[in-house]
Design a protein around this nucleic acid. Sequence first.
DNA 1: GTACTCACG
DNA 2: GACGTACGTGAGTACG
Length: 933
Amino acid sequence: MGNFGKGCHLHLIDGSAFIFRAYHALPPLTRKSDGLPIGAVSGFCNMLQRYVEGNTGPDAPTHVAVIFDKGSHTFRNEIYDQYKANREAMPEDLRPQIPLTRTATEAFNIACKELEGYEADDIIATLAVQARDAGGRCTIISSDKDLMQLVGGGVEMLDAMKNKRIDVEGVEEKFGVGPNRVVDVQALAGDSVDNIPGAPGIGVKTAALLINEYGDLDTLLERAGEIKQPKRRQTLIDFADQIRLSKQLVQLDENTPLDFTIDDLEVREPDADKLLDFLVEMEFRTLSKRIATALDVEPPVIADVDPAGANPVDAPEALPFKPDDYEWVRDAAGLQVWIDRIYERGYVAVDTETTSLNEMLADLVGISLCVEPGQACYIPLTHKDGASDDLFGSDALAEGQMDLDEALKMLKPVLEDDSILKIGQNMKYDQKIFARNGVAVAPIDDTLLMSYALNAGLHNHGMDTLSERYLSHVPIPIKSLIGTGKSAITFDRVKINDAFKYAAEDADITLRLWKTFKPQLHQKQVTTVYETLERPLVPVLAQMEMAGVKVDRDTLSRMSNAFAQKMAGLEAEIHELAGQTFNVGSPKQLGEILFDKMGLEGGKKGKTGAYATGADVLEDLATEHELPARVLDWRQLSKLKSTYTDALQDHINPDTGRVHTSYSIAGANTGRLASTDPNLQNIPIRTEEGRRIREAFVAEPGNVLVALDYSQIELRILAHIADIPALKQAFDEGQDIHAMTASQMFNVPIEGMDPMIRRQAKAINFGVIYGISGFGLARNLRIPRAEAQAFIDTYFERFPGIRGYMDDTTKFAKEHGYVQTLFGRKINTPEINAKGPTAGFAKRAAINAPIQGTAADVIRRAMIRMPAAIEGLPARMLLQVHDELLFEVAEDAVDDLVSAAKGVMENASDPAVKLDVPLTVDAGQGANWAEAH
DNA sequence: GTACTCACG
DNA sequence: GACGTACGTGAGTACG
């Protein structure tokens, strides 16, 4: 056939619309052999096939193309930064399917077109206009109303789902105006889906009325003063600019710079081999059979995967690891090849190599990428030249490396591209490294967090553990490259020829783990946990950690000196009392002094044969003797000095003057965070002397610290989960929960209650959360065991739901091997069916986990929502201490911050879980952390 | 590297 | 009936 013209018929398929329809119409199917999400691709292919089958008769197209969007940034974002800003992020399991839909289109031998920086709609507009001008027909297969402006003069739309053609009349029906005025109506009415503002209070009906009265938008805006309705008149005058902007946004670009012509889109016969190969690769059994029949060829055989082999754990394992096959990327050309492959794939595993485990001090040394198991590369950037055994080394850069800035400049668009998923193992680390190099990595997946959502309680989630367990592969040990202990070198001193294998392997392992875990999230029903409680927390924590908290060195230093003096005095006294000098800090030596030399009673040896000298033991002895009392004082000071006033000073970052902790998201089995290097979740507060350390945690000038903490969150959650009416009522009424418990248990009025009674009730309340036992309570309260047991019995009598909760939870754990939080987090309890004392531990942990874990989930949700809630305020979130969040905020914005943050925290369980008890948050503020409490 | 001790929720 | 027990963490020190 010759050039496109009269008698020709062009079909333009809106590819993105097909994909989203396919995705939402189908359940989350996965490829059986490896779990790759495939539902949308399957639906897409079915739709294409149905489309092709329907193309018979006189109306059949002579030319056809599927048009896709490309790039998230278009000229519309340039003129209006909020364009499509309210769009939800693409679902994670859809992302990897996008490139596959391109491949599918090509497999059907249908032209597949896209243009960087343009929406599919603009390409469709350009082609439709060209077809019309050439005198041919054009059918746009889409139901997107934005395309209706193109209808007319031989251009029509077809809603493939409803099989309904939309012509000029159809457009008039929808918009009340002809196609040539559709943009005018859209400009006025706006569009919440694309976030087009339009004119407030004016919808399609009113807009059409106005346009029909005045002829077109420009005339309308010119003569807006003539409108009779005062409100409408004012709106059009006030918002004229916004309306003109809206028109620019909805107006399709009919002159996109295409690198092809309509003639290139001529209908082609499908290539049976190519198409069936693709369908077999996707493992589409039904469809490949149907298409084979239609093409009159032999249906291909798709091997049925053995159910055991369907375990995705086994699939990636099959391919051996070959470190020698990894690639050392030396220059821009080499890197470009990898970037192209990433765009083809839609995802990439990324890993960074640096000079330190501390992200705030680490310098970037190299980057690894992996797009397919076994195919990984390492881009060395700042490896040094010097021999590693040379004491001084050389600071000259080694050969065969890209310039750091050049590599980052090339990778930044990829790492920040909304449509490219970046996969990492502990992405918070890499995200911080990249952030410090000006790259905001997103979106991300994290294999460490996937493992945590799937396997909490079974094992830790480090790469070595995961690789050995799920890939049966022992990774190259880092020690083999950098050595151990004091003689260890930094990674930039490792020879690139050794480094690239190790580094690339990490990316390879990460990608294989991702392929293993991704489908399991659905299978084990923890996708929601991963998506709502794990993944979104990564950037929030990264920000908090990078913000750090200001710590005043002088305050700490003065305290250290004071503690040292006191300790010296105590030490002299202790030696005096002992009649000899010894190391007070050695429990072994102390035990021997106390129990052997002095002959005190109650010496108990532990499994290593040493006497126990814990605080509880010394406290008992202290009632009769001076020495243990002094040791207790000495120990307290020693702890404060070594762990806090000395150590914290070493953690002050020289660049920021602040202390930057690191939170491990997957450290605690229950969902709690853990803080390390330094641990800022155990800064003293219970004793006056210790509490003063918090005075060193300060706000910048003009700012204050604000502490917001949940009041009794675990007890409230217990009241809800175990469904205890009396407790729920007490929380509803804002009562003193421990006094209420005491009152119920001992039949005493709350007014004028003996503090001792309340203290006992408090201990029981906490004991319940920990999986109470008579022994434990007795020890805690220092009362006879029988008495403690009597308390517990009374407690269960008054609150029978507690016993029910404990029994049900234990039973559930024994049956399923895990327990769950209210938000669906699973905590595995592998030892629940063990025998002996282990069983007791496991049982109490199982009872505690849903309560502690639900509280952890609640504050996670609050933290995830916090950045949006305090956006625009001169405030930042600094620390989390399990039930408390610490903020630094400008003095004049304290009230705004408190009301915003408190709101988020108190409503954090909504809408996923409706708690029967209110969550309340107490607020405090001050120049330092001690005052903020 | 392990045990002990103690700081926090 | 005996056994051994509060839940979850991280860090510093002694010691083999």
